[in-house]
Nucleic acid binder design. Structure first.
Lengths: 195, 195
DNA sequence: GGACTGACAGATATTGAAACCTGTCAGTCC
DNA sequence: GGACTGACAGGTTTCAATATCTGTCAGTCC
C-alpha cells in the first residue's frame, strides 16, 4: 500500500487495524493482505506464521503501553514514594486502556493469552524495574534488606488485581481505588520491615 | 431415584454427577431428570430455573471446600502464625482440588463465573475470617492498628494469585511455593507495621 | 390435594456440506 | 535474484436445517 517494498512495519500497522475492526477471532491473514493490497503470500514472507504475526503485534502494544514506566523506575527519588507512583502509573495506564476502549482491550487480552513468551518478557521487564526500585530502597535504608528479585515478584503478585487483565472487569468499581491504596500501603509497610 | 418424594438434596447430588460426566457446557436439566428417573418438570418444582439449580450446586461445593477454615480462623493462637496457616490452608485446599481433578475444577470454575452472588457471599465469608484474625492481632499488639475490614480485603487481594481460580494453571509451577512464602512474609510484615 | 407427568412454544445447540483460511511453492516480473 | 503472486492441499469455520433444551401448565394419579 505504501511506497515501494512491503515492510514488516506496514504489515504490523495493517494487522492492528484489522484486529481493531474484526476482533481477534475473525481477523485473518487474508484480511491483512487485502488491507495492504497484496497477496497473503507476501505477508508470509515477513512472518513465518499467523501466530508469529500476532505475537509481534502483541509485543508492539505491550511496549507502547509500557513507555514511561522504565524512566519512572530509574528516577532519582526516595524508593517508597517512587514505588508507589510506579505501581499507580502501571494501574492507571492499564485501567485507562481498559475503560477507554473495552473491545480493543479485550482483543489484546486474547492476543496476550496466546503467546506466553511475549507476556513473559514483558513481565520480566516489569520485575526488573521493581527490583531496581527495591534495591535502591535497601541502599537508601528505607527498606529492610532482602533479595530484590524475589521481593519484586512478591510485589508484582500482591498487586495483581491492579494490573492483571483478568481483573479488568473490576477496575470500574467505585471501591477499587480504596482497595488499591490499601494493598499499596500494606506492601510498602511490608518492605519497610520485611520478616 | 431414592425412597419416596423427590428432595432438593437428591437433585443436587444428581446434578453434581451429571456435571461431572458431561461438563458444564453439555449438562442439561433433562440429563438430571433422567439420572433420577423422573420427568424434568419435577426438577422445576424444586428449582425455579436451571441457573438457580447450578447456583445451588456451586454454593454446596464452595461450602464443602471451605469447611475447616472458619475453625482455623477462630482458633486461640497468635494472629500472625494463625493468618499464615489460614492462608496456607486456603491455598492448599484450592490447589489440591485443581491438581487432583482438573476437569472437575474447571467445571466448578465455570459455574462460579455464572453466579456473582454465590461467589460474593463466599468471598464475604473469607473476608470475615481474615478480619477476625486481624482484629485479634491488633488486640494482641502483634499488628499495627488498622481497619480490619479494609485490611482484610487488602490481604485477600494481595494473595489472589494463590486462591483465585483464574491462576490455577500456575499452581503446579515449581516456584509457586517460594512465591507464596514471599507474598505471605511481605503481607505479615506489612500488618506488623502498617503505614 | 399435592407431587408428578407429558405435551408444548420459543429459544438454543448440533450437524454436515459448502465456503474460507493457513501455509507452501513453483513460477512471474522487475 | 529477490520480492511478489496465485493456485493448491489439508484443516478450520460458517450456515441453515434439524434436533434438543428450557420453562410452563393443564391434567393424572395416589
Amino acid at each position: 500500500m505504501a511506497a515501494g517494498a512491503l515492510t514488516a512495519e506496514e504489515i504490523l500497522a495493517a494487522t492492528e487495524g484489522v484486529l481493531r475492526r474484526y476482533g481477534p477471532a475473525k481477523a485473518t491473514v487474508v484480511d491483512v493482505a487485502r488491507a495492504l493490497g497484496v497477496s497473503h503470500g507476501s505477508v508470509y514472507r515477513h512472518f513465518p506464521t499467523k501466530a508469529a504475526l500476532r505475537a509481534a503485534v502483541t509485543r508492539r502494544w505491550l511496549d507502547r503501553n509500557h513507555a514511561g514506566l522504565a524512566e519512572l523506575a530509574a528516577e532519582d527519588s526516595p524508593a517508597p514514594e517512587r514505588l508507589r507512583r510506579w505501581l499507580a502509573a502501571l494501574f492507571e495506564a492499564k485501567r485507562r486502556k481498559a475503560l477507554d476502549d473495552p473491545e480493543l482491550f479485550a482483543t489484546y487480552t486474547v492476543l496476550a493469552g496466546e503467546s506466553d513468551t511475549v507476556v513473559g518478557e514483558h513481565i520480566d521487564a516489569l520485575l526488573g524495574e521493581i527490583a531496581l526500585i527495591i534495591a535502591d530502597g535497601v541502599a537508601q535504608g528505607a527498606f529492610a534488606p532482602c533479595d530484590p528479585q524475589v521481593t519484586a515478584r512478591a510485589v508484582l503478585d500482591a498487586t495483581g488485581r491492579f494490573h492483571n487483565p483478568l481483573y479488568a472487569a473490576e477496575w470500574s468499581a467505585p471501591e477499587i481505588d480504596t482497595a488499591f491504596g490499601a494493598v499499596c500501603s500494606l506492601v510498602l509497610a511490608g518492605l519497610r520491615a520485611t520478616g
